Simulated scan of single mutants.
Amino acid sequence: MASVLVTDDAAFMRMQLRDILTKLGHEVVGEAENGQDAVEKYKKLKPELITMDITMPEMNGIEAVQEIKKIDKEVKIIMCSAMGQQGMVVDAIRAGANDFIVKPFTPERIQEALDKIL
């Protein structure tokens, strides 16, 4: 079981991820609505895993990954991308993300990503 910070600017996406992660036996310790918020919440909550949307206001997911990885190289980050964001996913992996899942999410795909990185 991992402690998880869910980051997405859309409340319904955070809720969907929270539900799936909770059903898979993980503990969602916080939610962030943009990259800046994710960096701040990461410092406070120190989760083992972060789900990170790519496209968000204020600070995007790639910038947030870079900031968080400066604090902790070991934290696991799964990027959440929409179809057609493959180029940004590559940038995110270069920035330190461990895996990515494409919206709409399925519990199976999330479990697969978790099994791979945890």
Rank of each mutant, 00 (worst) to 15 (best):
D8G: 00
G87N: 13
V89T: 06
S81Y: 09
V6C: 08
A82T: 12
V102L: 11
S3Y: 08
A82I: 04
D9L: 08
K69E: 05
H26R: 03
T106V: 04
A95C: 02
M59Y: 03
E74R: 09
D37C: 10
A92L: 05
H26Q: 07
Q111V: 03
V29C: 04
T22M: 00
D37T: 00
A95T: 05
D115W: 07
G35S: 05
M1T: 12
K76G: 00
L49Q: 06
M13A: 14
K23I: 02
K69H: 04
P47D: 10
K43E: 15
A38Y: 05
S3E: 12
V65Q: 01
M88R: 15
G87I: 00
K23L: 12
G25Y: 00
N34S: 01
L24S: 06
V90R: 10
V29I: 15
I77V: 10
K116Q: 05
P104W: 05
K116Y: 02
S3L: 00
D37A: 03
Y42L: 10
G25H: 02
D9A: 00
Y42F: 15
I93C: 09
E112S: 11
E63R: 09
D8P: 02
M83A: 14
K116T: 08
M59S: 05
R109D: 12
K73E: 15
G87L: 10
L21R: 03
A38C: 07
H26G: 06
Q111L: 12
H26Y: 07
A64Q: 02
E40D: 15
T51V: 06
K103S: 07
I68A: 09
I62Y: 02
Q66S: 14
A11V: 11
G25C: 07
R109T: 10
S3W: 04
A10L: 14
K103M: 00
A113C: 01
V65D: 00
G35L: 07
E74F: 00
E58V: 14
G87R: 11
R109V: 10
E108P: 00
A10E: 11
E48H: 13
L118I: 12
V90D: 13
M88N: 15
A97S: 02
K116G: 04
F105M: 13
M52K: 06
I110V: 15
G61H: 04
L114H: 03
M1Q: 11
A10I: 14
G35E: 09
A32C: 10
I77S: 01
Q111A: 15
M13L: 07
V90E: 15
P57V: 03
K23Y: 03
K44Q: 14
D99H: 11
K69R: 06
M79H: 09
V28Y: 08
C80W: 06
A32E: 04
V28N: 02
E27R: 15
F105P: 06
V4N: 06
M88E: 15
D53M: 00
V75F: 02
A64N: 09
V4H: 05
M88P: 00
K43N: 05
L49I: 13
L21V: 08
V4R: 10
S81R: 08
N34F: 05
K73N: 11
M52C: 03
I101M: 12
A113T: 03
Q66W: 05
P107H: 08
M83P: 04
I54R: 01
D8E: 03
A2S: 14
A2T: 10
K43A: 13
A10Q: 11
E40H: 03
V6T: 04
M13V: 15
Q111N: 12
